[in-house]
């Protein structure tokens, strides 16, 4: 089997994160691929929850949209959008939420609204969707994003979704239930919040990636753990399953 690309490693690492987890909230793209891979390899009982209202979906294909018919047809339960947010997400019933963003700051706050000024944006992005309340209430949040200076920025153009706010204690002051972001998984490595300050710290790098490369791809002076771990390479089982899934 050919060596894994950094993108494949990112998906495999995200899937591993779901070992032993009961339920995961996912959007489309890489997080969805990772969650389906987790069901194939690590956690066959994992409950996939999509914003469209499908709880316990068992898709065979990676869906293009969160509302593909296959999700509704294979779900344990299909609920309305008000029910999804008020009965399932708000009370904190979902263990892990995967979120993406156009910009991430050092406290894992996210921007998916605009680049530039809100009233005269350079780039208008899709907007909040479910992210603010998902990030506030789910048990924990795992951010999945490509590692680049334009994504990992010193200052967000717009704060769409609170991660750890301005640092330790911010979530408690806002009355949030969930633990917030516990990891940011990129194509270069994994950042985790410092237990005391909540500032993102590079704790793991993928094979063949240098720490300096991660620093250069980050728009602030990145904190680095004393001895970052190296991501264990994807196993043949993980990589084989991922490639088979992507080819469906």
């Amino acid at each position: 089997m050919s060596a894994a690309t950094n993108g494949e490693v990112q998906t495999v690492v995200a899937a591993r994160r779901l070992t032993g987890v009961r339920s995961v909230f996912i959007g489309v793209g890489r997080p969805s691929t990772a969650a389906i891979l987790a069901r194939m390899v690590h956690n066959p009982g994992l409950v996939l929850v999509y914003e469209s209202g499908t709880i316990g979906a068992k898709p065979f294909h990676v869906p293009l949209s969160i509302g593909d018919g296959e999700l509704a047809e294979t779900a344990d339960s299909v609920v309305s959008v008000p029910e999804m947010f008020n009965y399932w997400i708000g009370p904190g019933r979902i263990d892990v939420a995967f979120l993406g963003a156009a910009q991430v700051d050092r406290f894992a706050n996210l921007n998916s609204t605009v680049i530039g000024d809100y009233d005269r944006p350079r780039t208008r992005l899709p907007g909040a969707g479910g992210a603010p309340e998902i990030a506030a209430s789910c048990g924990e949040v795992v951010v999945v994003a490509p590692h680049a200076p334009r994504t990992f920025v010193e200052r967000l153009d717009f704060l769409t979704t609170v991660g750890h706010g301005d640092g330790a204690g911010a979530r408690e002051r806002l009355g949030f239930r969930g633990a917030g972001p516990t990891a940011v998984i990129t194509d270069l490595g994994v950042l985790e919040p410092d237990p005391a300050t909540k500032e993102l710290t590079l704790t793991q790098i993928h094979e063949g990636v240098e720490v300096d490369q991660v620093r250069e791809a980050t728009g602030w002076a990145l904190a680095v753990a004393p001895a970052p771990a190296t991501t264990p390479a994807p196993t043949d089982q993980e990589l084989g399953a991922l490639r088979e899934l992507s080819s469906r």
Partner: peptide
Amino acid sequence: VMRGYAGTDLVAH
């Protein structure tokens, strides 16, 4: 009534 929007820039907009 809900829990939401807290701490975000949406509140001002």
